[in-house]
Amino acid sequence: MSATAAANPVKKRKSTLRRVAEIVITAAFLAYVAYAVSKRWSEVQGVIGDLSVTAIALSLVGSLAAVWCSFLGWRVLLADFGSHVPLTGAMRIFFVGQLGKYLPGKVWPVLTQMRLGKAYQVPGRSSAAAVLITMFITLGTGLLLTAVVLPLLGGQAWDDYWWTLFTVPVAFVVLLPPVLNRLLALAMRLARREPMPQPLSARGIGLAVFWAVATWLCYGAHLWALLLDLGAGGSDLIIRSVAAFAGAWSIGFLLAIAPAGLGPRETALVVLLAGSVTEPVALVAALISRLLMTVADLAWPAIALLTDRKRRRPVVNTPDIDTVPDSTPAAAATE
C-alpha cells in the first residue's frame, strides 16, 4: 500500500472527527443560548413585544451599512494588489463569496472568492490575500476597540475577556506595511506560490483600517438602535454598543468551530452587555441582532446578482487605489 493511500483514511478520519467536533461545540453554545432564553422566557417575551418596527428597521439599516463598509475595505486591498474590478463585479465576488462563512470553518469564503474572482482576471493569490487580510483587520480593530472600552462594560466583561488587552500591540505591529508585506511574502514562499503582484501600501492598509472602524461603528449603531428601543439609556450607550458588538463578533470569529460565529457570538454579547442592560434585554438584542445580520448577509448577494449584468470586463491595473470607482465619469460610463 502506498503512503498516499495509507494517508487518505487518516485524513478522512480527522476530517470526520473535526466535523463532529464542530457540530457538537456549536450545538452546545446554541443549547446554552436556548436554555438562557427558556429560563427567562416570560421576561424575554415581554421585552420582544416592546420592540418597535422603527427600531428594527434602523437596526437593519445599520447592519446593511456595516456589511457595505466591510466590502469597501476589501475592495481597497484588492485594488492595492493591482486588481481593479468594476463595482458590480466586485460586489458579486465579495457578497456571494461571504455566504461561505455560514459553513463550518473559515476557508469557504476564501475559496469561493478565488473562484468568482477568476471571471474578472483576479489572481487567486490576490483574492485569497485580500479576504484573509480583511478578516484580520476586522478582527484586529474589533479586539482593539473591545480592549479600549472593556473597563467601561462592567459586569463579568473584564473577568472573562481581559485577555483582549494583549491583542493591542500584536495587532498594531502586524498591520505595519513592512511587517505585513514580509508575512505575505513568507506565506507565498511556504505555499510555493508566486509573489504577490505588488506589495500593500501604507495608504491601502490605512484605508482598509478606516473602513474596518466604520464597519464597527455601523454595527454598534445597529445594536444601539435595539437597546435604546428596549429601554437602555446613558450617554455612553453607543460606545458600549460598539465595544460589546466588536468583542462578541471577534470572540465568535476566533472560535472557528462555529459557522459565522453562531452561538459563541450571542453568548459573548450577553456577557459583554451584562453591565449595561438586564439579561432579558441582552438576550433579545443578541437574538434579533443575529436575525437582522443574517437578513443583511442574504440581501447584499441578492442585490449584487441583480445589479451584475454578467459582463466579464477586463481588469484595469493602475497604481492608484480607487475606493469609490463609480464616482468618476469613466466608472459611471462603464456601470
Rank of each mutant, 00 (worst) to 15 (best):
V270K: 01
V47L: 13
V76K: 12
A6L: 10
A214G: 04
S42C: 02
P325T: 04
S70M: 13
R125V: 10
P9H: 07
S241L: 06
K101L: 04
A248D: 00
A296Q: 02
V61H: 00
Y120D: 12
G155Y: 04
L254T: 14
W162E: 07
V33E: 12
V242Q: 00
L103Q: 06
R189L: 04
I205R: 00
V67S: 02
A65Y: 01
A258Y: 08
T26P: 09
R19P: 01
A147H: 04
A34K: 10
A21R: 06
I288W: 07
T167E: 03
S70W: 00
G275R: 01
R312I: 07
D236T: 15
N181H: 11
W249T: 11
V47E: 13
V315A: 15
V20K: 08
W211S: 00
A243N: 00
D229N: 14
S241Y: 03
N181T: 08
A214K: 00
F166I: 04
R203I: 11
I137T: 08
D326W: 13
I23L: 15
G117M: 09
L143F: 15
K106P: 07
G206C: 05
V76H: 08
E43Y: 06
G220Y: 00
S42D: 14
W300H: 15
A3F: 06
V173W: 10
L144N: 05
P301I: 02
I303C: 09
L152T: 14
A6W: 03
D308I: 01
E335F: 11
R192N: 07
L72C: 12
A286F: 00
L30T: 11
W224R: 02
W163A: 12
G62M: 09
A171L: 03
P264R: 09
K14F: 15
E279F: 03
A208L: 05
A129D: 04
E194K: 11
G117H: 04
R311V: 11
L200I: 07
L230F: 01
P314V: 04
D229T: 01
R115C: 01
L298G: 10
S127T: 10
G233L: 03
V168S: 06
C69K: 03
G261Q: 01
I288N: 06
E279M: 13
W211K: 00
D229I: 01
A6R: 14
S276C: 05
F245M: 13
M114Y: 04
L273C: 06
P329M: 05
W224K: 01
Y32R: 09
V20F: 14
A330I: 03
W74V: 03
A225N: 03
L305T: 09
L228N: 12
S63F: 04
T4R: 11
I251W: 07
P197L: 10
G117P: 02
G247W: 10
Q156A: 15
L150R: 09
G263S: 14
V33Q: 12
A34E: 05
E266L: 12
Y32M: 11
P151H: 11
P280E: 05
V170H: 01
V277E: 01
V10M: 13
K101D: 02
V33A: 12
V110T: 04
L217E: 00
T294C: 03
G97K: 02
C69E: 06
S289K: 02
S63L: 02
L184V: 08
W74F: 13
V122C: 13
V24R: 11
V96T: 15
L60H: 01
K310Q: 11
L103T: 04
R19H: 13
